[in-house]
């Protein structure tokens, strides 16, 4: 089947996602393929309307897509960088961003509630403007700028000229006054929602449709993802997935034994969400029904959560000592 329309891509996604959900890597490669197919269709639409793009561009994913950690349902977090400089070029690529965003929504990816999308001028810029933007975010150091930097840190090229993104990521990695920025980043992301109580019980949601369920996103994923992202930023690592970032950390920051320990637990977490998550929709995908878990499954989850908390504390102490 030629995937030359959003409707066809949607059908394809619905038919194939179960087969692709055998593990995290397969599932994320499948998401990448669907995204690339949407971008191709969107580009074709825009070329029909406005002609060929005037310069090379790179469309990149951020958030869980950037980290290759999407669950079955996922929302949109993306941006674009292009080489051209004229104001009309910006119009062109914003139009492309809107087309991609609408296409992705049709295919089944919710739009980002915070508007982190290539249809937003903040996330769709020329190379030069992106360079200035990153400098501004670094020097501004306000809560919002730090948040934007943390989002950008997970950017991964999906389509087009990946060098355009690599240059920007290198610019960020080479920033000289990292220590101070790191402390600000720590304060921005290191709020921890506890998953295990002091009596060793799983802390479940008490209200709403997910009462009785464990919020894996807040209690399990965030400690690992946020802690490792900070370490990766400190060491100038360009990898975006949490697992690859852990592997690339220097031994002085994390010993080889610790790397194996945290990698194993995070891999287990990705697997755990895939197997036990209630994947009815995007929100439900983050939750695991506590009542449905066996004693053994609860034990595994507690170990994952405790290891995440341990990592969180380790990174907090490390950065605060800097």
């Amino acid at each position: 089947m030629e995937l030359n329309s959003y409707a066809k891509i949607k059908d394809f996604r619905i038919k194939r996602f179960k087969a692709a959900s055998i593990n995290n890597e397969e599932l994320n490669l499948f998401h990448d393929f669907v995204h690339e197919s949407v971008i191709s269709v969107a580009l074709h639409e825009v070329v029909m309307r406005r002609g060929q793009p005037s310069s090379p561009f790179c469309f990149f994913a951020m958030g869980s897509a950037g980290r290759m950690e999407q669950s079955i349902w996922s929302d949109q977090d993306h941006g674009m960088v292009f080489a051209a400089e004229e104001p009309t070029d910006l119009e062109y690529f914003l139009d492309l961003g809107r087309e991609i965003s609408n296409g992705m929504e049709i295919v089944g990816y919710k739009k980002c509630s915070g508007s982190v999308m290539a249809s937003n001028p903040l996330w769709c810029k020329s190379s030069a403007d992106w360079g200035n933007q990153l400098d501004y975010w670094v020097t501004d150091s306000t809560w919002e700028s730090i948040r934007h930097l943390l989002i950008f840190a997970d950017a991964r090229s999906l389509y087009g000229e990946s060098t355009l993104l690599s240059i920007l990521k290198t610019q960020l990695a080479n920033y000289s006054e990292k220590d101070q920025l790191l402390v600000r980043m720590l304060h921005n992301t290191m709020h921890l929602k506890k998953g295990v109580g002091i009596l060793g019980q799983l802390l479940v949601e008490t209200y709403g449709t997910f009462s009785g369920s464990i919020n894996l996103k807040d209690t399990a994923f965030f400690p690992y993802v946020n802690a490792v992202r900070l370490l990766a930023f400190y060491e100038g690592i360009n990898g975006t997935s949490t697992l690859s970032r852990i592997s690339m950390l220097s031994d002085s920051i994390m010993t080889p034994v610790e790397k194996v320990f945290y990698r194993e637990h995070f891999s287990d977490l990705l697997e755990y969400r895939l197997v036990h998550g209630s994947h009815i929709d995007y929100d439900a995908g983050h939750y695991v029904d506590g009542m449905a878990l066996t004693k053994k499954e609860k034990k595994i989850l507690k170990e994952i959560l405790r290891a995440g908390e341990h990592l969180y504390e380790k990174v907090r102490r490390l950065i605060e000592r800097m």
Binding site: C112, S115, V116
Partner: peptide, 8 residues
């Protein structure tokens, strides 16, 4: 805060 981006 509806327009606040989240790091996720």
């Amino acid at each position: 805060n509806s327009q606040q981006p989240t790091v996720n």
